[in-house]
């Protein structure tokens, strides 16, 4: 029940956030295209509505990716720190905020370049998938990434594909074509894994979400997943969690990370928080677990 309301409210917060960003984007557009916009021009608006619609679909926490099962090392991090100090509620919240920072920069360092590359070069899906797999240092992280990647591919196949293919002839939407080809190879080849990050790039491209939004949402969803995990691991309450997500702190951080990683080639993707690999890798050694990672 509480999980439901927290999902609901997280959703609402997200919608509010997206809407405000849409408004600012529109106002910027108004400034730059003031003359043509004096009478509302229909085509421009329709293009934006398309993207917004897709963005709302992808940001929905009801999107069946199974992200709720993963804490990306949070659970292990808490266990490692419980051993060192007896933690009170306030210090738990403080150490959570450190973890959130570290986890976001890890994701931005290791996965974001693959999101951007997947979006920009959907035709390289298989290489990206292989290279991401080669750069994933442990089974736990790999499991989490592949589970969500496959789920995303399934959502694409079963739910999104029909709508987005009907308007396009083959060859028009290269991301959609790559996704179709990719899900064909995954059934025949053992060497394809379907990692989440590159596929996120492909799917957002196919849905015509603007690149910056796709990258922003990728990091934001991660923050939401960890925060929601923190609520369920009783690190903080649902209102506190919403405050974290709503904070301008988080917004600035995500924007900064997207900006930093914007031009990072996948060869330079790497770990900036080495201890994160250990926390995630040692998740399997926890005595009790409620998450998959």
């Amino acid at each position: 029940m509480t999980a439901n309301t927290s999902h609901q409210s997280s959703l609402e917060a997200e919608i509010a956030d997206l809407e405000s960003r849409l408004r600012t984007a529109r106002s910027r557009l108004n400034v730059s295209e003031a003359p043509s916009h004096s009478s509302p021009s229909q085509p421009v608006r329709r293009a934006q509505d398309e993207a917004l619609h897709a963005l709302l679909l992808l940001s929905d926490s009801a999107l069946p990716l199974g992200s709720f099962a993963f804490s990306s090392g949070l659970e292990s991090y808490l266990a490692h720190h419980k051993l060192q100090t007896s933690t009170s509620a306030t210090s738990q919240a403080a150490s959570f905020s450190i973890f959130l920072q570290l986890s976001l920069s890890t994701l931005a360092g290791t996965a974001l370049p693959y999101v951007l590359a997947g979006y920009r070069h959907p035709e390289q899906a298989e290489t990206l998938d292989n290279d991401f797999d080669a750069s994933t240092p442990c089974t736990v992280a790999r499991r989490a990434s592949v589970a969500q990647g496959r789920a995303l591919l399934t959502v694409w196949d079963r739910s999104f594909k029909a709508k987005y293919n009907q308007n396009n002839a083959v060859g028009e939407n290269i991301a959609a074509d790559s996704l179709t080809a990719f899900s064909k190879t995954i059934r025949s080849s053992d060497e394809v894994n379907a990692h989440y990050a590159p596929l996120w790039g492909l799917v957002t491209r196919a849905l015509a979400v603007p690149l910056h939004d796709a990258a922003y949402l990728f990091l934001f969803s991660h923050a939401r997943t960890i925060t929601s995990a923190a609520v369920r691991a009783s690190v903080m309450g649902p209102y506190q969690a919403q405050a974290v997500l709503a904070g301008s702190d988080l917004q600035q951080r995500i924007n900064g990370l997207v900006e930093d990683g914007w031009n990072t080639p996948i060869e330079d993707a790497g770990q900036s928080v080495p201890v994160m690999d250990l926390w995630v890798g040692r998740h399997e050694k926890l005595y009790s677990r409620i998450f998959n990672s």
Binding site: L102, S135, G256, L257, D268, G270, Q271, S272, P274
Partner: peptide, 11 residues
């Protein structure tokens, strides 16, 4: 396996 430690980093 790529380790990147820079002073300010991305955090």
């Amino acid at each position: 396996d790529n380790l990147i430690l820079d002073k300010h980093g991305r955090t």
